[in-house]
Design a protein around this nucleic acid. Structure first.
Lengths: 186, 186
DNA sequence: CAACGCAGTGCAACATGTTGCATATGTCGG
DNA sequence: CCGACATATGCAACATGTTGCACTGCGTTG
């Protein structure tokens, strides 16, 4: 598992509260590892028990108190261990593909609508990523170290969305053509 | 959720036992929706309780008895309902990307080894998919209906593996170049 | 003959993720 | 002034997925 590890990476980049982490997981890190705030709070607690992170309560005025988390020595060791660990690519879970495979068992048009909707979502995401690329990494060939790694992860997001988008278009084109050829039946 | 629905699609294509389903989920359907046999047995039981599928016990000689599952009317209705249902693309969970993002917090070379291993895995998968494409769909432009849908799902697998592979190569190239430029430090 | 793999079903315990709710305070707009 | 929104943390119940084990009986291989 890796939510702990995603949190370690994020906290190592910058210490912060559970709340702040939750917001990071709504953007940047969250683009390739999703997590809700409940999951984050629960996991942070466990990580404190494991000794991976240290907490520091901070009393605030005008705002609720907060707890700042920092990666400790044990956390850094665990992170290094995990980074070097061998693991297999996670098996796929593509529900839209399941729908396409079963399309003829229901309303084909409705399935095509779903594909079109996903297509648009992927296009939106892609726009977001491309905007970030343009804004934050205008000259990618000169990046190095941590900045380079951040850029490469963004590239994963871009490629992934582009791939999904193109597949949706391929599906729509093929299914439209098939509808024309076999009008009204199936 | 969709394991039930993936099972409905698979059973609708062809009735069978839990064991047979488990093997299908090790190939074809399983290429885009993974499931273990325990999950499948448990889910089949629930689907019987829901009235979506019918069971028929078959006593065999020389082999353990088996239970053949068939999609019933309620199951077909549920499948049609789900196929038409709107849902959002699932959030990403890319642990390799997390490792790349955190690479400089550990042994960069080890992370590159992981990327290279994933690269090879994706290349293997891609070969499998391309072989299936060649064998089962030599002339894709003439497909229609269910066969077309099967083909399109295979295309999703091909595109996905190709995308992952290319990303791994991009990462390896960029990180190697970065290592040469900043030898020994960081 | 023992060990292993295939066919076949299943439980129990655990890990992880989701959903809904609870709680507190300050600011800002209508 | 009231409600919405941001800040900030958390529990409880549930759904889903993972891991390890148990049991049967046949055929093959060492």
């Amino acid at each position: 598992m890796a939510l702990e590890h995603a949190i370690l990476v994020s906290l190592q980049e910058k210490s912060g509260t559970g709340y702040e982490l939750a917001r990071r997981f709504d953007k940047s890190i969250g683009y390739f590892w999703a997590a809700s705030h409940q999951q984050i709070y629960r996991t942070l607690k466990r990580m404190v028990d494991l000794g991976w992170v240290d907490v520091q309560a901070v009393t605030q005025q005008g705002r609720p108190d907060k707890k700042v988390y920092r990666v400790g020595a044990a956390g850094r060791a665990e992170l290094r261990r995990w980074l070097a660990e061998e693991d297999e690519p996670a098996p796929l879970r593509n529900d839209l593909a399941v729908k396409v495979r079963g399309a003829s068992m229901g309303d084909v048009d409705k399935v095509m609508e779903q594909v079109a909707r996903h297509r648009d979502r992927h296009a939106e995401r892609l726009d977001v990523y491309l905007a970030i690329e343009k804004r934050d990494f205008p000259d990618p060939s000169n990046l190095s170290g941590q900045r380079l790694h951040q850029y490469l992860v963004l590239r994963a997001g871009i490629r992934s969305e582009q791939g999904s988008l193109e597949w949706c278009d391929e599906v729509l084109a093929a299914m439209r053509k098939d509808c024309e050829r076999t009008p009204g039946d199936e």
